[in-house]
Design a protein around this nucleic acid. Structure first.
Lengths: 245, 245
DNA sequence: TATTGTTCAATTGGATCCAATTGAACACTT
DNA sequence: AAGTGTTCAATTGGATCCAATTGAACAATA
């Protein structure tokens, strides 16, 4: 069976090997209830993990063939991805994976800086000792982790544990969605900051502040934490994009 | 042709007359490029304006018949509305318009309180004199407006004018989307606050602060403005829901 | 009678077919 | 040769048909 994205422009400019969609499909199969769910979840994972790079055109027929379904569930899945701003969908022209960029990273941080401190502020007073233990476990798990995608999951899990009691479903959904989108930049953040000191000090300090129920301190730590990553990414992109010409 | 929602449970409990979808369809027709766009935009307007109340089941066949299209563009439109959290979509069970509630209103304000001050903070330094003039025009237009939906549009237009220079597309899209969703609560806010003093003082004070490029003051005014509406809606719902038993 | 099993109409999910649009290569005019 | 109009393959949008699922009414059993 043909592989997806063998000669997408983004794949070529990035110089990365073109991954086959089969690996994504073969992954953990949570027994999707509909083909649309299956296609949507698989494509989203592929995009967020970076396996389907920005700029990749998503041909309906190709996707249908590779997923072993007809074009209809593919179309429904693409509609949902469009609403999540993961693909651009132009009438009669087709879908293209949205590109990532320094400007988009800054944009994303602006959203996270708006959402996450708000979620933390609402959640912190209701956090239970069990919640804090789970958060501590997430930190411990991150210490030994070397896989980028799993690291992203753990990081998201840690933060979401702290936000979880916010009792604000819309806010939490937005936070989670944008943290997931940020996974697309995780490899760059890694390149900018390095593996080991990947903000674990911040995580522990944040957890301490939550333990003390100190809202202003926790908010400050979280805000600085995000700003620091934002700044690191900015300088990284500035250096990288300065080299090109 | 049959009318939509003649006996939806929500319409009955709300006691409102069941509106026909034709009025929505006949409205301004911006020459949609695809049937999916047409269906999606029309349904979203209907839901946000309150003409299609929460709890309404959206039967694919009915919608297709009333829009004069097949079920396929209806299904694609429903997928997009699902991603916008305007409908609930359960496999093999169909779509239902999400219900509004006091809890959801509080949730929505939590999101707006997180997003809008952030957008204002980023935008304010770049606002031009022309922007401020346009914002002043919006305020003036609101003074004479008596139509609820147009009032919502003007209010959104005023706020978006002030946020517009934030240079953060994701953030702005979220702000606009959630202001639009808030239109579903506009009738309740009106009932809680009354027509005339509908926050116009706040609007003028906010514009003044923007004119002075006073970020802290502008943020305080905006935050208080939102908190005030939030509180008014809370007490309104508390009173209304207390009457029921 | 309460409970469980079963049938069946209503509705959605998915596949296939046809129509409409795009854009790029080609021919044509000036 | 530059620009313009035209044809046509590739691709998406939309319609129709069939399959799968749901749940509610009904029947059977303990």
């Amino acid at each position: 069976m043909a592989t997806l994205l063998p000669d997408s422009p983004a794949a070529m400019t990035a110089g990365t090997a073109a991954p086959a969609l089969e690996t994504l499909i073969a992954k953990g199969k949570p027994r999707y209830r509909t083909a649309t769910e299956f296609v949507e979840a698989t494509l989203r994972d592929g995009i967020l993990s970076g396996q389907i790079p920005g700029g990749t055109p998503l041909r309906q027929e190709d996707l249908a063939h590779q997923f072993g379904v007809s074009r209809m569930p593919v179309r429904e899945a693409l509609r949902q991805l469009e609403a999540q701003a993961l693909i651009d969908f132009a009438p009669h022209k087709g879908a293209v994976v949205t590109t990532i960029s320094a400007a988009d990273a800054a944009d994303l941080f602006a959203v996270r800086l708006a959402l996450e401190p708000a979620a933390l502020r609402l959640s912190l007073p209701h956090l239970t000792p069990e919640d804090l233990l789970r958060a501590a476990d997430s930190i411990a798990d991150m210490d030994g982790e070397r896989d980028l995608n799993r690291m992203g999951d753990l990081n998201r899990q840690f933060h979401m544990t702290l936000y979880f009691r916010a009792n604000s479903p819309r806010l939490l959904a937005l936070v989670e969605q944008h943290m997931a989108v940020f996974d697309r930049y995780l490899r760059f953040e890694l390149a900018a900051l390095g593996w080991d000191h990947l903000k674990q000090d911040d995580h522990r300090a944040l957890l301490d502040a939550c333990h003390d129920k100190d809202i202003p301190r926790a908010e400050t730590i979280l805000t600085d934490h995000l700003r620091y990553a934002d700044q690191a990414l900015r300088t990284f992109f500035a250096k990288r994009d300065g080299q090109i010409p």
